[in-house]
Structure formats: structure tokens, C-alpha cells
Write a protein that binds this DNA or RNA. Sequence first.
RNA 1: GGCGGCAUAGCCAAGUGGUAAGGCCGAGGUCUGCAAAACCUCCACCCUCAGUUCGAAUCUGAGUGCCGCCUCCA
Length: 451
Amino acid sequence: MELVIYDTLTRQKRRFDPLVPGQVSFYTCGVTVYDYCHIGHARVYVTTDTMRRVLLAAGYSVRYVQNFTDIDDKIINRAAEAGIEYHTLTQRFIDAYMEDMGQLGISPADCYPRATEYLPQMIEMIGSLVASGHAYVSDTGDVWYSVDTFEGYGRLSRKKRDELIAGVRVDAMDGKRHPSDFVLWKSAKPGEPTWESPWGPGRPGWHIECSAMARQELGESIDIHAGGEDLIFPHHENEICQSEAVTHKPFVRYWVHNGFVTIDNEKMSKSLGNFFTIRDVLTQVSGQALRFFLLRSHYRTPLHYSLDGVKEAKVGLDKLVNTVNLHRDSPEAFGAVLSSIEVLKNRFWQAVSDDFNFSEAIGVLFDLSRMINTSEVSSGVLAELMGILGLESAALGESITQEAEDLMKVRWDAKQNRDFGTADRLRIELLERFQILVEDTKTEYRWKKLT
RNA sequence: GGCGGCAUAGCCAAGUGGUAAGGCCGAGGUCUGCAAAACCUCCACCCUCAGUUCGAAUCUGAGUGCCGCCUCCA
């Protein structure tokens, strides 16, 4: 099946052709680990995880790499405030990150490079940039990238170098030659973590880490590089000029950027303070519900977050999960029903192949759900397609207490004896004490645990 | 100021030239002791104006409103 991906660099959908047929190198910019992740982060990682799942389901082998920025100003400041080592702080939030992402049903990356573990690679790249004249050392011992030396600077973000000068404050020049020059190596400041380098002790600037880690872990040209829209400039712009000045090869074949999550029509961000952390939200709704909510709209459009919205999404998701559970053991479809299901399956694949249109794909899932319920055929295909979107539909394997189980039996017997008073009382008790909803059919009862 | 994006029902949200997917909510119905689940029916002149076209939510132009990037940000 042909896959089409919208590429930020060319601003158009392009047929997806990995550098090596059948193999995909996929890099997603990770988080700076100084705090808990919010819904905006959740959106990026749910999206890229789902893209990765689609690629895998389509038969590609995928190497998926996502970094942690574990050294920067904010980390140093937070650690100082807390009176702990910076790496104690970063480890804490890396652990929290892993927990949060696990709740969202995100598969672990193949590799989680941390900036502080790639100093040699970064120093080598910076050295190469200095040697080739793309970078220079200022009086203060900082090393800067000279954007004027790179022909295509501004191509990704559609910015012109001379126009960038306008908004820059003069007092922020710090020994730069051009206002847009950015730091590759920061000379040591008292009390900060430092590493040795040919330019003296210091620490790396932000952008160089992704160039170095992507190169080390995925090679000099990678297929997909993803991140939030806010990374287009300057982060990804800078990555391109660093990497390509060193390797003379196209750094990235497809640039993929997520739209923002908004609150009251404004971008959710740490600086505005209008953010909800993933773990806050997960006290109210399940990770699956949040994941489903995030996948319901196309990844490039803004997504308005609200708790009500997530709860609404959950109702829909429950419907799909219900269908899967109800018809897990129903007979396989055949004949006309099978044909209809094949058509739906095809529509699903067309949707996800067209720039990862998960919203449309979910629409197909509801059609499929109806088809399964009306025809009473196996829900296997629905479970399979939900799995591609990372939506779990496995039977609730969780054990219920013996007491609850006994109560359900007692209730059923009471009902069979037309003792409705007892039956109803037990229904309420099961619901209130165990969060178990009992559903009756003509011949049996079934139950589900409310989440 | 420069650049970019968005505007589809009460709400959420696909659709980018052929006559508006899907979900939530709501109304009615089938089923049912009750409840739940499931199913059926109903619920949009696609921000405005002007154009192109046999035909436009979809293309063009103008306008209005909102948002983003240009500084750390997913």
C-alpha cells in the first residue's frame, strides 16, 4: 500500500519512500526532563507512536529513536532550587515520562539517547564545524554556528535571514556575528556541570544533541523526523544546518510536525501556565481514553483540550471495546458480510496511509463496529485495526473478588426466581461497591468493570 | 512588522471539484420485569461577499474572526 506523508520542508504531501526500501529510520524530538509531561507532549508521542505502529503494520521494519534532553538551563535551575544533583532530577522525570507514556499505550522506543551520553559525538561534530568554517569561537570561549555560512538556512521555517535580525535584541548578541547564530558549546559557568572539550570546559548547546544522536543512532540521512510545530524554528532549522554542513547529505527525508494542543483557544505551554499534566488528567480518565481523544483529530490541526472532550471520547471508545468483547467468539464472517468487512478494512488502510488520517480511520472503526454487531460475526478484525492505533481491546483479565462473583451468581438466581427486589438490590450493590455493571441477556449475565 | 495556519450541526470532527463520514448530546422507536448493551429513524443551505465551472465545503479574489512562529517550548 502506498503511503503519503505531509512534509513540512516542501509543504506538501509526498509519497513515502524510505532511503532503504522496507526500512524506516524515525527520530522524534523528546522532552527536556525537568518537569512532568503535559497533554501537548502526550499528543506528539501518541501521534508518533501510532505512526510507527502503522508503518510496522504496513510491513516496514522501523528503528524508532527518541531522545531525552538531560542537560540545559532549566534543568540546572530546577536542580539548584531543589538542592539536588541535576542527574537526580532528570532521572526522576525520565522515570515519570516512562510511566506516563506507558499509561498512554505508547511502545518503548528502540533507543532513548540522552544528551549527556553523547558528548564525544557532539564535540566531534562541533570540531568539524569549526574546522570547516561553519562555526567560530568567541572571546568568551563559546562556540557559535554561523548561519551565514549555510546556503539553505531558513528553508524549513520559511524565514529569511535578514528578516530575522529585526526582532532580535542587541544586548543578546554575546559575541555573535549574526543575530541568528546559535550556540554549539557554552563555556563553563561557576556551579554548573561541565565537560572537557577542545574549547575548554563547558556544556553543549541545545540543538547539537539531536544532530549528533540522530547521526549516531540512525545514520546521516534519516527518513522521518518528528516533533511539535514549535520545534520548526529554530530547533529543526538549526539541526539541518549543523548536520548537513558536516555530512553534506540531506539530513531528513520527511519532516513531520504536530499541531498544538490548545486551552481556551491558546497554545498549551509551560510559559503560559495553562497546561494539564498527563498524570493529572489520568486521575480522571484512563490513558486509553486520553489516547483515543488525541487520535480523534488530525495530527496537524490544533486540538482543543477539555476534560469533557476526553470523557466524550471515552464513551465512543467504550462502544468499540464493547463490540470487541461481545463478539470475540462469534463466528467468522463469510460471503457478503465478509466482503463488506473487507471494504471497511480497505477504507481504514486508505485513511491511515493518507498522511496518517487517524480521525477518518476511527470513523471507519465505528462503521465496522456496527457491521459486526448487526451481523454478529467475529470482532477479530476490529480488534486488529484498533491495535494498529494502539487501542487495547483485550478482555478485562483483571480478577474480581470472590465476593463479587458470588453476588452476581446470587443475583442471577434471584432473578431467575423472579425475585426482582433482591436482584435489583444486588445490582446496585455490585455497582457501588465493586464498580461492576451487570448486563443480562435472555440466557445469561455478563459484567464489566467501569473505568 | 515579516511569515504561516485555521473557520463544517448544540458539542467534537473527517471530507480539498460531483452534490456533507463518524462520534457525543438530544428526540422517537425495537428489545426488555428493571438496567445495560445492541440495532433502527430523525437532527448542517459547510464564516461573509464576489468570481471560475455544467457543478464548489472543496478552486480564485476580497473581507471578517481566531490562532501560531519570529525568544525556551511538543
